[in-house]
């Protein structure tokens, strides 16, 4: 018992750190169940993949918090969240689902709300990220590529200086700060206009 809990916690940490091997293991252990479930409810295998990946992303975000502990197995969490996501998608497409996501009967009302909250938080996060990405798109070059290389592709300032032809990392850094100032302006103006 202690051992399996420990293992689950290690898996969570692996996911939080984007550890390819551990993420792949968790993926393989669980995706089929979600795929089959979605396919049995009006979706395709690809829909199943999408839903499962959204659930994995939610788990990834939750696991960023070191305090985070799952009260159930990782697999149980992923499947339950996936069910809620698919249910929501069908509702949004005005295809009235003829099932309830909690038809497994395992979860009580409290945990159901917890799943719904997790999905909602992630949705808000995605909206925020989308706005940020949009502002980055509007930046123009070289700022767009520079910020992308640093924040999305995790490149070092040393690499970036080389890529963009700056004589040293400090010059690249100065350019990065200038870009950030412009990005901030774009981002917050967009927010005000909303």
């Amino acid at each position: 018992m202690q051992l399996s809990l420990l293992k689950e916690q290690q898996l969570l940490e692996g996911i939080a750190n984007n550890d390819r091997k551990i993420t792949e293991q968790v993926y393989r252990d669980n995706y089929k169940q979600v795929q089959a479930w979605v396919q049995g409810r009006g979706g395709s295998a690809d829909d199943g993949d999408d839903v499962f990946q959204e659930a994995m992303t939610i788990l990834f975000q939750k696991a960023q918090n070191e305090e985070f502990r799952l009260t159930c197995k990782i697999g149980t969490y992923l499947v339950a969240v996936s069910k809620f996501i698919w249910y929501k998608k069908l509702e949004q497409q005005n295809r009235r689902p003829d099932f309830m996501p909690f038809d497994s009967g395992e979860e009580d009302a409290g945990t159901q709300h917890a799943y719904e909250d997790d999905i909602k938080v992630q949705e808000e996060r995605e909206v925020h990220f989308d706005q940020l990405t949009l502002a980055m798109e509007e930046l123009g070059e070289p700022c767009r590529s520079l910020l992308r290389a640093f924040y999305n592709e995790n490149k070092s300032m040393q690499d970036i200086a080389g890529m963009f032809g700056y004589t040293n990392p400090d010059n690249a850094k100065t350019q990065k700060y200038k870009c950030l100032t412009r990005l901030k302006k774009l981002f917050y103006t967009a927010q005000v206009n909303k």
């Binding site: 992303t57 910020l147 981002f187």
Partner: peptide, 27 residues
């Protein structure tokens, strides 16, 4: 406050993008 919020968002967004790339390549 605004500056550090922006940086936090950029970092988080980048981390999530990289994780989703991992998911995509596994799939």
């Amino acid at each position: 406050q605004e500056a550090s919020n922006m940086l936090r968002s950029l970092n988080k967004n980048g981390e999530q993008k990289r994780f989703q790339q991992t998911l995509g390549s596994i799939n």
